[in-house]
Design a protein around this nucleic acid. Structure first.
Lengths: 215, 215
DNA sequence: CCCTCATTCCCGCGTTCGCGTGATTTTGCC
DNA sequence: GGCAAAATCACGCGAACGCGGGAATGAGGG
């Protein structure tokens, strides 16, 4: 078998002891190489433009100076291909949420064993997203919540169709033309929709439809 | 040490061989007990009302008859406390999405080793959500997408305020009264908002604001 | 000092909307 | 075959809206 391509890893972590042992372990792994350890995002950002960027970055969220969330945004803006794994002691929804939106590919708790962190690095190289189960639970909960249960207001299929076009911003006349009916018909549908959704304006109907995911 | 409380597991899986070896392994695990194996959701739903429900259900998505997505909805409706882990060969976004929204607490691929499934069962009991890394990747991507980067359209603070009230469904006059200005002023603000958001109607402005999370 | 930008206000025209009230046809179901 | 629900169409009124103009004010920066 030919030797595998060696993947490069950077660590951004202010605890020198933790960063050091992590780097050591990575370098003792055949397919991985940790060439750089930074103790702040600012340092890493300087290097990432000058040197060739790594494949993976392990980053702490609670860093002095620029925090990890802001750091990941900047790094991803410069090098979108880099995979960033967040290492954190925080498990609050806000941080998880922000990190994911900023483009994190993984989210591990600092209590993770060094071995499991190595596993995560390998997992990310094959298209996975290593996520601590407790954190995954929160992500699932957030996901289920933001796309929460759509209440059924008993809209007929035709009414849903009208509502759909309403959300696209079409006027009564435009909807009428699309559905090959008269504008009076659309008017009636609209009023029935208003009644069923218990609203009294176009905007209210649309906001309700969007927020409660009525399609 | 006192003996740990034994957690009960049900399996809903049409492949009898797979279900059997899984059940065997679960029963050979000290803290777990698999008492029931079903080959369809319908069967399980009958039992869940009659017998005492389990702590965890391992469920296939691709079942004959009622599929797993519908199954999880019904089960959660009857027994919200039960934790459901999806076992699937599907990795498409639609199924993942639906399962999460239906209340799944975990999402594993069928290629997972039996041992790792046991690990997952234990993980779920301590508040985790075992998710296959590849699937986790898709979830993260979906999450990042649905809550995508809010573009800044350069709205002034006053305009944001007007937009906010717009989303509440207030009329120009009503907004004017709330902000102690004339309706003409609101009119101007609206037109400026339309220009900045590149829309030409109330509804379009509101949908854009909601979808892109402008607050 | 001037220029820009945000904010405020005003007028008018034509269109659309919300809503009340009516009717007819089509569809599905018992 | 009959009945209820859904879908279709119609008229009219008053209000709100989109959009085109124009203009005054004040705060902040080059």
């Amino acid at each position: 078998m030919g030797k595998q391509h060696i993947r490069t890893v950077w660590i951004i972590e202010d605890s020198r002891g933790f960063a050091g042992s992590l780097a050591e372990l990575i370098n003792s792994t055949e397919s991985l190489s940790c060439q750089q350890v930074f103790h702040s995002c600012e340092d890493a950002l300087v290097c990432i433009e000058r040197d060739s960027p790594p494949d993976i970055i392990l980053m702490d969220i609670g860093l002095p100076g620029m925090n990890g969330i802001e750091g990941i945004k900047r790094i991803k803006a410069l090098v979108p291909a880099v995979q960033v794994i967040m290492l954190t002691v925080f498990e609050d929804n806000e941080n998880i949420f922000l990190a994911i939106r900023a483009g994190a590919s993984g989210y591990l708790h600092k209590s993770a064993t060094l071995d499991s962190i190595i596993d995560s690095l390998e997992s990310i190289l094959v298209g996975g997203a290593p996520v601590n189960p407790n954190i995954a639970r929160k992500i699932l909960a957030m996901f289920a919540q933001t796309h929460e249960t759509k209440t059924d207001y008993g809209l007929s299929s035709r009414e849903k169709e009208v509502l759909q076009h309403l959300m696209e911003g079409l006027s009564k006349k435009q909807i009428a033309d699309k559905l090959f009916v008269s504008h009076n018909t659309i008017d009636t549908h609209l009023r029935n929709i208003y009644t069923k959704l218990q609203v009294n304006s176009r905007v209210n109907a649309v906001t309700k439809a969007l927020k409660e995911n009525i399609l």
